[in-house]
Simulated assay, not measured.
Amino acid sequence: MAAAFIKAANAKIRSNPWTDYFCSTHFWGPASNFTIPLAAIADTQKSPDLISGKMTCALIVYAFTFMRFSLAVRPPNGLLFGCHTVNATAQSVQGYRFLDWHYWGGKERKLLSEGEEVAKGTRVQAGPAGGEKK
């Protein structure tokens, strides 16, 4: 009885192209995979000293590899291609931030600007003569 119900439900789902796509891995694979680029986009608001250069490089290669794969499968998976395009872009931004922070003077610029802010924001107060404590 249950097998007949499942078979009938599957036939009903597969008869409509929209529900057939919505219930397939061509939809749910990319939909669940979108968490990777969303995390990378969210990480652009964090400090660049937290970025792993090796992982970012691996994720860029992964994104470009699966962009190619998404077009090689039949039928081509546009949602997967879009997911990995967003991922490649977000990871490339993270890669640029990593290189800027560690190799192109970003860390030094930040320290310099923080030092200037401290110098501008503090007032030198005159204390008792001779450094005596009250």
Score class of each variant (00 low, 15 high):
1 M>N: 10
1 M>F: 11
1 M>I: 14
3 A>W: 11
6 I>W: 13
7 K>H: 14
7 K>L: 09
12 K>L: 14
13 I>M: 02
15 S>K: 08
20 D>F: 04
22 F>L: 12
22 F>G: 00
22 F>R: 03
24 S>R: 04
25 T>Y: 14
27 F>C: 00
27 F>K: 01
28 W>S: 05
30 P>M: 00
30 P>F: 04
33 N>R: 09
33 N>C: 11
34 F>S: 05
34 F>H: 08
34 F>N: 03
36 I>T: 09
36 I>W: 13
38 L>I: 11
41 I>N: 00
43 D>E: 14
44 T>I: 11
47 S>Y: 06
49 D>K: 12
49 D>Y: 11
49 D>Q: 09
52 S>E: 09
52 S>Q: 03
54 K>V: 10
57 C>V: 13
57 C>P: 15
60 I>D: 03
60 I>S: 02
60 I>R: 05
61 V>F: 04
61 V>R: 03
62 Y>G: 10
62 Y>E: 13
64 F>C: 11
73 V>T: 03
73 V>A: 06
73 V>P: 05
73 V>N: 05
75 P>H: 01
77 N>S: 00
77 N>D: 03
79 L>K: 03
79 L>E: 06
80 L>M: 10
82 G>Q: 01
83 C>M: 08
83 C>S: 01
84 H>W: 10
91 Q>E: 12
91 Q>F: 12
93 V>R: 08
96 Y>M: 09
97 R>D: 04
99 L>Q: 07
100 D>K: 08
102 H>R: 12
103 Y>G: 01
103 Y>T: 02
104 W>F: 13
107 K>V: 11
108 E>W: 10
110 K>T: 12
113 S>H: 11
113 S>P: 00
116 E>V: 07
120 K>M: 09
120 K>A: 12
122 T>A: 04
122 T>S: 02
125 Q>Y: 14
125 Q>N: 14
128 P>V: 04
128 P>S: 10
129 A>W: 07
129 A>F: 07
133 K>I: 15
